[in-house]
Design a protein around this nucleic acid. Structure first.
Length: 276
DNA sequence: GGGCAGGTCTAAG
DNA sequence: CTTAGACCTGCC
């Protein structure tokens, strides 16, 4: 089964899946120009060529799921144009112009970015895969390869802290359990976050143990499409110090600060030859 | 072997 | 309110 679209402007699967917003998608082992992974309990394979993009699904699944996941309803050239007055940011934007901010599952995003703290990307990915294998629902793809959905908050809550620790999550185990339990018992309503302004949403997320400003802003940006969230990590910090006299730009507090952040982050890491 | 990785918690001033 | 240390683990 395959569904093909005309290749959108500002769309590069390597940039989208390697820019650090998402941990379950990887370059396909054998197929050229293809990335694959699991999201929303479904296995997705995307092949990109110069003028078209192929998806391993029917039109309906594309329309209802992947179109939104890949944020294809936004025109990213408008964001890039709006950064024109800032030389550093504009250079980074053009370099990273194929990035799209994914609309990922809020719970998965929350849990994944808790795992990401003081950690490196290969290990983050490994932990998430093991966690999915152990507590996620099995996905039938018919190709003989076993794949697993990201575990629900409920299943991790039932598994308990020790079991989460056994997945090599380290000191983050108690944080993951805190998040899982609050979501599972309904003490924390993830859906309510969608309706909150940035500050309020940040404060709410930070009531979860192990969620600080950096993790909270990543969750809001990648899981809730709050583009005004501006995650500051070591890489962005470096850019702010090196290229901005007062460490600030109006764009970093603007409506699309998070998009600016992603461009800068990806640009700086590529420049420093960081391979994911 | 010590340092480091998309940080955050905790305990102190 | 700001700031050191500590923290699991795997790979260098």
């Amino acid at each position: 089964m395959m569904y093909t679209i005309e290749r959108p402007k500002n769309f590069d699967i390597a940039q989208i899946f390697d820019c650090g917003q998402c941990f379950r998608f990887n370059k396909h082992e054998s197929k050229e120009n293809t990335y694959c992974g699991v999201a929303f309990g479904k296995y997705l394979e995307i092949t990109q060529s110069e003028n078209s993009v192929d998806f391993n699904c029917d039109k309906e699944t594309f329309d209802t799921l992947w179109y939104s996941f890949l944020n294809l309803d936004n025109d990213y050239s408008l964001y890039i144009d709006s950064f024109k007055d800032d030389k550093t940011l504009y250079t980074a934007s053009q370099f990273s112009s194929g990035i799209r901010i994914l609309k990922q599952d809020p719970w998965e995003t929350l849990c994944s970015f808790i795992i990401s703290q003081n950690n490196n990307i290969p290990r983050i990915k490994g932990i998430i895969e093991n966690m999915s294998k152990a507590y996620g629902e099995k996905i039938e793809c018919g190709d003989g390869i076993e794949r697993y959905a990201f575990p629900t908050a409920n299943s991790l809550y039932e598994a308990g802290t020790d079991a989460i620790f056994a997945l090599k999550t380290g000191f983050r185990a108690k944080y993951i359990y805190d998040a899982a339990s609050k979501v599972a018992v309904g003490e924390f309503d993830l859906n309510a976050i969608f309706d909150m302004p940035l500050d309020e949403a940040m404060q709410a997320l930070m009531t979860i143990k192990g969620v600080g400003p950096k993790v909270a802003s990543c969750v809001l940006l990648f899981g809730f499409s709050k583009y005004d969230a501006f995650p500051i990590d070591v890489w962005v910090k470096k850019i702010l110090n090196n290229y901005y006299s007062d460490g600030m730009s109006p764009h970093f507090t603007g409506k699309h600060a998070g998009i600016a952040q992603q461009y800068l982050f990806y640009y700086e890491r590529c420049k420093n030859n960081v391979y994911l």
